[in-house]
């Protein structure tokens, strides 16, 4: 599985890019607020703007195509490539996570598992995630509070999430899909040794 490592986290990178985009938008707004006071024949003004627009159109189109191809290399979906070292079944229930090693063939309503689990570092772990009642979201956080990856837990469906923990320590599972009154209190722990 690929992970973007150019910047500390994907969150920071996306935040910086978005901030830069917002500043650019406001530079255009300020430019318009200042320059609009001048008068120019509408045909000539339109011609100037549309000349820039043509370049912008092609620039944006090419840029989006490049980003599209690059970003599609970093998908969170299960791969056929890397070997799975360990399989964990995860069942979300109002309002508890149940985790147990191995593939479960039980009805999720009858599944028994703990909300703490120990797993080895640097191993490709496959989480088979489902729900016994409503939709939940299986989000893995590190001890610094960074969301590393996630998938939905949907009743009647299994979502397979592969993840390799690179560092030892305690990781928390928070619920990422609103699931009722105690949604904010639904947590589990994974110890990586």
């Amino acid at each position: 599985m690929c992970n973007l490592t150019i910047f500390p986290t994907i969150e920071n990178t996306a935040g910086i890019i978005s901030l830069a985009g917002a500043l650019l938008v406001y530079m255009v707004v300020i430019f318009l607020l200042i320059t609009a006071s001048k008068e120019e024949d509408k045909t000539s003004a339109k011609h100037k703007v549309y000349k820039v627009r043509s370049r912008y159109f092609w620039g944006l189109t090419i840029f989006l195509i490049i980003i599209l191809f690059v970003s599609l290399q970093f998908l969170p979906y299960p791969h056929t490539g890397p070997k799975v070292d360990q399989v964990i079944t995860v069942v979300g229930s109002q309002w508890v996570w149940k985790l147990a090693p191995g593939v479960s063939h039980e009805n999720p309503k009858n599944f028994t598992g703990g909300n703490e689990l120990s797993l080895p570092v640097n191993k490709n772990i496959e989480f088979i995630v489902t729900s016994s009642d409503v939709n939940h979201g299986f989000g893995i956080y590190n001890s610094q509070g960074v969301l590393l990856t996630q998938t939905q837990a949907m009743p009647g469906y299994e979502n397979d999430l592969q993840y390799e923990f690179k560092e030892k320590g305690d990781y928390k599972i928070l619920c990422m899909e609103y699931c009722g009154a105690a949604h904010a209190f639904m947590e589990a722990t994974i110890h990586i040794y």
């Binding site: 994907i10 969150e11 890019i17 978005s18 938008v25 707004v29 990856t149 990422m176």
Partner: peptide, 28 residues
């Protein structure tokens, strides 16, 4: 004018989040 700016900024942050690789850490 400011409404357009709000649309552009809100739209841009949506496009960033519509990247699957980013959405895995921004979703919800």
């Amino acid at each position: 004018l400011f409404g357009m700016a709000g649309w552009a900024i809100g739209g841009f942050s949506a496009v960033v989040d519509s990247t699957i690789a980013v959405n895995k850490v921004f979703h919800n």
